[in-house]
Design a protein around this nucleic acid. Structure first.
Lengths: 239, 239
DNA sequence: AAATTGTAATGGTCTAACCATTTTCATTTG
DNA sequence: CAAATGAAAATGGTTAGACCATTACAATTT
């Protein structure tokens, strides 16, 4: 019903005032707040307090600090970076397991592929083809290029996420990729056969997207991720 | 290729050091950092710098500041609060639209229902039945209880997420719920017929889970969310 | 025993100064 | 004249020391 009253903190009040002015649109992207010394005068507080408020606004991703003459707190484009960061913290903090992350990934990579199949334009397909070509090169080069292949796989999934035109998928994809990557080391020892298998996965996904076969794209993407996961688990057990 | 050269701000370094100690598990939930004056000694910096670092850690949701004797920066439970907050900021900045959020929700509610169907135990089913019963009461009470019905719907989806036994789904569910529900006001004017329709959705989902029909559960959950979204859009256009 | 009060630890804020970086613009130099 | 140079000013980054506000806990009083 009620929230804790708290907040006798002056800098919080300043954060809220400035935040309101930003969110209401009075302050637009690229605008500058007054200098710290001017803010000090305006709010009638010490510079230290102003600076604490600026740290909070900065961490929220609402402003970016520029140095030197004409510098100061510049109003920023809201970006997904900070959401990404705090979600990543949440994941690391809760010690979420590889299985959890992989399982989650299976589901939403399927969704991404399905949406991509629905929405891919000619230009998107060209981009995918290009990535596919790179992947083929590395897959054929065999195990010594496994690391590059994995990077390309990452690019591939990010490209798919972008095709959905839904920034949430892109953000979540980035988070998962960044947090799952530490586990990928085990995949570096993927044999030549498995590399080609994985390349074939990607190729089939693109084919399904091309023919706008939504459910086929979803199923293929799910299987692709599941195969990665299964292989990682197998490796884990061996160690 | 290269990242922007980092600017050397002392407080950033302090943030990173402390953050590492928290994420590595050396500092557990409930532990306290040394007092500001002690940190000042430890890091050999001024208290102002320490405080700026603490503001950042606080905003990241990693610590919570307690007042008075024995107070200080307490390592916090990982919580979705800060993620929710930054996501809410994104939405207000309209980088992410309601449509994006709804679309994302459609996908992963489907995944959740599918996993729930796979894993629900007897006890889980009992919990769902109970929520279902509550929902039925509100649905039959008609529009004046629409608000309570929506709350119950929320509980229902959270319960499903918990059944997956994957904390990622639960966390994401909470984040999305908290950010999407501000839009649900429009749903308060859902007519009696629609309330019952929605109750039927929930009932069918539980039925599908009971008979372990994974794909049916997925499809039903997706449709359920899609119906919510469609109705919201319709209301939006009317205003 | 219960209530009150005092005390010390700790976060919150203030003041005043100096340092570091960056832009601007006048000055020097080729 | 054009380019290089350098001084000045604006602005964020940091420091130091002080005082206030809140709180836990012990000592004192009832």
């Amino acid at each position: 019903m009620f929230k804790p009253a708290k907040r006798n903190r002056v800098f919080q009040d300043i954060v809220e005032q400035i935040q309101e002015h930003i969110l209401s649109g009075e302050l637009k992207e690229g605008d500058f707040l007054p200098s710290e010394r001017d803010l000090q005068e305006l709010f009638q507080v010490s510079r230290g307090t102003i600076r604490e408020a600026l740290r909070v606004l900065e961490q929220k991703g609402l402003v970016e600090i520029k140095l030197g003459v004409g510098g100061g707190a510049m109003i920023r484009t809201a970006s997904v970076d900070k959401v990404t960061e705090s979600l990543a913290l949440l994941i690391r903090h809760q010690k979420i397991s590889l299985d959890h992350l992989s399982e989650f990934r299976e589901g939403f990579e399927g969704d991404i592929a399905a949406l991509a199949a629905e929405r891919a334009k000619r230009k998107d397909l060209e981009g995918l083809e290009k990535i596919l070509e790179t992947a083929r090169t590395y897959a054929e080069a065999g195990q010594e290029r496994a690391s590059e292949f994995l990077e390309t796989d990452k690019d591939f999934h990010l490209a798919l996420a972008r095709i959905t035109r839904n920034p949430i998928y892109e953000a979540v994809e980035r988070i998962v990729q960044e947090n799952i990557f530490s586990y990928y080391e085990t995949l570096l020892y993927m044999g030549d056969r498995r590399l080609k298998e994985n390349y074939e996965d990607l190729r089939k996904i693109v084919a399904a997207i091309k023919e706008k076969n939504i459910e086929k794209a979803r199923a293929l993407a799910r299987n692709h991720v599941a195969r990665f996961t299964k292989y990682m688990r197998k490796k884990e057990r061996q160690e």
